[in-house]
Simulated assay, not measured.
Amino acid sequence: MPERTLEQIDCWIFDLDNTLYPASCNLFAQVDQRITSFIAGHFNIAQDEARALQKRYFRDHGTTLRGLMVEHDIDPVPFLEYVHAIDVTPVSPSPELADALLRLPGRRLIYTNGSELHARNVTDRLGITHCFDGVFDIVAAGYVPKPDPRPYDQMVQRFAIAPGRACMVEDIARNLVPAHALGMATVWVSSDSEWSHPDRAAIGTGDHIDVVVQDLMAWLETVARPAA
């Protein structure tokens, strides 16, 4: 890891969706459809109109939920419960991932724009819930999504993280910008999704990314302690 050694990292912060499981599982397609259905039902409008609103809220506010809260004062609790009531069986249990995570030195945290319940459902399916020391979700963030820098600061305070001794792993490149600014090491799990790639027009050359990996498990094996 550039400019720091493994021994200097004592806090590993992982995004959840498309990071701890492969993007090919496509869980977000289910969430995406349920968001559309929620909007259609709440406003009593057609699905195509709801879809257009959903995408505008996402574009203007960072997440659809944030747009609904800012523009319509929507209660976030029933929204999160509804959109995360999905089938997680496309994700395969991974005892190998659990083993590699447990061999990382120091603490392991999840930082997600989803809910803690969603994180628990996914990590239970993977068989890795016991590997983590805490979850910082969208509720803990005051419903302010990544990559707004404010919840990153809140997470650092809540978990007493020393940013210079932390590493953040994330599939959406722009979400690593605030982590890099805080002094964290950053790892981008790349995929074929164009929206997850660095926006070079906005952030230059992507120098906020220390390491690019295509295979999370292969990378974890290079940084985890050897098996006993």
Rank of each mutant, 00 (worst) to 15 (best):
E49N: 12
I209M: 03
G114K: 11
R125L: 08
D75Q: 06
A119L: 09
D75W: 03
D73S: 15
N18E: 13
F79W: 05
D199G: 00
L16R: 12
H84E: 10
V77N: 06
T63A: 09
H197W: 11
V156W: 00
C11G: 10
I209S: 01
W195C: 09
R150D: 09
D153N: 14
A52V: 06
I110Y: 11
R120I: 13
I86K: 08
I209N: 01
P76T: 08
L126G: 04
V169N: 00
L102I: 13
E96T: 12
L101T: 01
G106E: 05
T89G: 13
H72T: 03
G106P: 11
D199K: 06
L65K: 01
C25G: 08
D48A: 15
P163D: 08
A228E: 06
R56Y: 10
F43G: 05
D210L: 01
D60W: 09
I203D: 04
R4T: 02
I45F: 04
S193R: 11
H118E: 06
G142H: 06
R150W: 05
G134Q: 04
Q47L: 15
C11K: 07
V31L: 10
H42A: 05
H118Q: 13
M217E: 05
M217I: 09
V91R: 15
V70T: 13
D133S: 07
D133R: 02
D15W: 00
